[in-house]
């Protein structure tokens, strides 16, 4: 955005460092946000470096070893093995990758869409197209998101990408609503009025004046939502509408294992715990991000 930083060297760098320190201070005021940060970092590392970290990376694929099937947690298989003898820990690590892809993919799609719809509908609140956009949003919001996602993905071939699309369709209206609300109140702020009075373009007003003031909230919601998006992805794969076997997905692992409850409890329980940890981690992190970006000291 700003170009000529070189003309006053030093100042911006120090200011930025100061800003980072301040942000960290606000973030770290709540100890749970640090817990969240640690959990999320771990999940990221495990997901990305699964082949290096997992004890049996080859178990992520179509691997069969019936001699080691249905083994309870032991020193060899820390979380036990499933019905065809694959190490559950390795599969969970691999499933993290799919879950993260799910979360990031969905958000990369819905945030720009929701933001643009929200900005346009909020800024031109009185116009017919604003009403039209928001009514469409309302219709989407009126259907329970999981039901909507199930219906949409049932219509498509079950792949990871398609389940991302299904979740996105159910999720974008929430962002549109949020940005709509913020924009429609912010357009009356005097700094927006000032820009209008100067004769600034609508593009400038929407993306340079209003949007930067929404980023904090968007970022917070994004972090908080990651866990829930992943949960919805897992729900889809639980009913077989997500990633297809043999690629491990947390939802599929839970649904497969559920048949062997309670005797081979580890097959279903550990992937469930993994889902829970993901959601908790992103929620704690999201709270910290919220403190960092929106609270005044």
């Amino acid at each position: 955005m700003s170009t000529n930083h070189a003309s006053t060297p030093g100042i911006t760098k120090r200011d930025r460092l100061e800003g980072l320190k301040r942000a960290w201070y606000k973030f770290s005021l709540n100890k749970m946000s640090i817990v969240g940060l640690v959990i999320v970092s771990l999940i990221l590392i495990l997901g990305v470096f699964q082949p290096l970290i997992a004890p049996y990376p080859e178990h992520a694929g179509a691997y069969v070893n019936f001699s080691a099937a249905n083994q309870p947690p032991s020193s060899q298989y820390i979380l036990g093995t499933d019905t065809v003898g694959r190490d559950i820990l390795s599969r969970i690590f691999y499933a993290f990758r799919g879950a993260l892809l799910m979360g990031l993919g969905v958000e990369a799609f819905i945030i720009p869409l929701g933001t643009i719809v929200g900005l346009i509908a909020g800024y031109w609140k009185e116009k017919w197209f604003s009403t039209a956009l928001m009514r469409v949003t309302d219709i989407f919001l009126a259907v329970p998101p999981l039901v909507l996602a199930l219906v949409v993905s049932a219509l498509m071939r079950p792949t990871l990408f398609n389940s991302m699309m299904a979740v996105s369709i159910a999720w974008w209206p929430m962002y549109a609503r949020m940005i709509y609300g913020m924009t429609s109140s912010m357009r009356n702020e005097l700094f927006v009025k000032s820009a209008e009075l100067l004769g600034a373009s609508k593009f400038h007003i929407l993306f340079r004046e209003i949007l930067p003031n929404c980023l904090g909230q968007i970022f917070t919601k994004m972090t908080l939502d990651m866990g829930w998006v992943i949960l919805m992805g897992a729900s889809l794969s639980f009913v077989g509408l997500g990633e297809q076997p043999p690629t491990p997905a947390l939802g599929t692992m839970v649904s497969d294992g559920a048949k062997y409850l309670p005797d081979q409890w580890w097959i279903a329980i550990f992937p469930s715990i993994a889902i829970m940890v993901i959601i908790l981690g992103f929620n704690f992190l999201g709270d910290g991000v919220k403190d960092m970006l929106t609270s005044e000291e």
């Binding site: 955005m1 700003s2 000529n4 702020e189 005097l190 700094f191 009025k193 000032s194 820009a195 100067l198 004769g199 600034a200 373009s201 400038h204 340079r208 004046e209 930067p212 003031n213 980023l215």
Partner: peptide
Amino acid sequence: TTLNPRRIVKDILSLPLKI
């Protein structure tokens, strides 16, 4: 309230000049 809290001084002052 009339100065956008998210924009730096340089951007605030160069906006009218650019327009």
